[in-house]
Amino acid sequence: MNTSLNINFRKTALVLIDLQKGIVPADRSGKVVPNARELVDAFKGNDGFISFVNVVFHDGTDALKTETDAPQQASGKQPPDWAEFVPEIGVTENDYTVTKRQWGAFFGTDLDLQLRRRGIDTIVLCGIATNICVESTAREAFQLGYQQIFITDAMAAFSEEQHESTLRFIFPGIGKSRTAEEFLTQVRC
């Protein structure tokens, strides 16, 4: 059921979620950043639009706080470089970056506006964590009408079970899933 992809780089954006110094260590496989970098190179080589997304909390009071059954992740004082993109993905000062203050990359940012102004109707999505910020962004994108391609080995969660649950139960209903190699092979055809 893995149909080929017909990618028009002028209408497709790569959206990378939270590949930043304070979050990337959660990728125990070590594959997310190298696979994401291959995608960055492919998009840059085809003049594609890339959105590098990070999460930053000003002083912790801007983080969402609700009562939950699960322990809340710390969002207060972080190390000074916590929100910096990892250098391996090659973000430059000319690249488009989005800073979010919650899970999803669309809510409270200008991401949708910037994509629509460029005529983009498809996003290629990857990052950390699969079941939290990537999935939240994917759900928002689906509701906004974007076509989506999820790069499964360029994303990770805090457990394999969390990662696989989103890949198995959520993503098939809102887009297409590919590995980085499958995506890159199919767009070169």
Rank of each mutant, 00 (worst) to 15 (best):
L14I: 04
S51V: 02
A42M: 07
D18V: 00
D95F: 02
N46Y: 04
I17Y: 01
I23L: 15
L39V: 03
L113Q: 10
W82N: 14
T130K: 13
F107I: 11
G45N: 09
D110F: 02
G90S: 01
I17T: 02
K31N: 13
V53P: 01
K77G: 13
D112K: 12
I50L: 04
V40N: 05
I50S: 05
G45S: 10
P79F: 13
K65M: 13
D110N: 12
F57L: 10
P80N: 14
Q20P: 02
G104H: 02
P80Y: 01
V53F: 10
A26T: 14
V56P: 00
V15E: 09
D112E: 15
G104D: 15
L111M: 14
A26I: 15
W103R: 15
D110E: 13
I132R: 04
G90E: 00
L14H: 06
E67H: 11
D95K: 00
G119I: 03
G119Y: 10
T109H: 06
T68S: 14
L14V: 07
S51K: 04
V55D: 05
G60N: 02
E84Y: 13
V55R: 09
A36K: 11
E88Y: 00
N94Y: 04
D47Y: 01
I123N: 10
A70H: 06
G104S: 15
F57D: 08
I23Y: 01
V91L: 05
I50R: 04
T109R: 06
I123M: 15
Q78T: 10
V56N: 07
D59F: 03
H58W: 08
C126A: 15
V53I: 14
E88T: 03
I23H: 04
Q20E: 14
G119T: 08
P34Q: 04
F49D: 01
S51W: 06
F52K: 01
K100S: 04
A70K: 12
T92P: 06
R37M: 06
N46E: 07
Q114S: 07
I89L: 03
V86C: 05
V15F: 08
Y96N: 12
G45Y: 00
V40E: 05
F52A: 00
E38W: 03
D18L: 03
T122P: 05
R37N: 04
T68F: 03
T68W: 05
P79H: 09
A70E: 10
K100L: 08
A26D: 15
L125Q: 13
D47A: 10
S51P: 10
A129E: 12
G108P: 00
E88C: 01
F57K: 07
D121Y: 01
A26H: 14
I132W: 07
T130P: 03
D69F: 02
F85Y: 11
T92F: 00
F57V: 02
L39H: 01
T61C: 06
D110Q: 10
R116E: 12
R118T: 04
E38A: 07
L14Y: 06
G30A: 06
A42F: 00
L113G: 06
N46G: 05
A74R: 15
L115E: 08
C126E: 08
T66V: 13
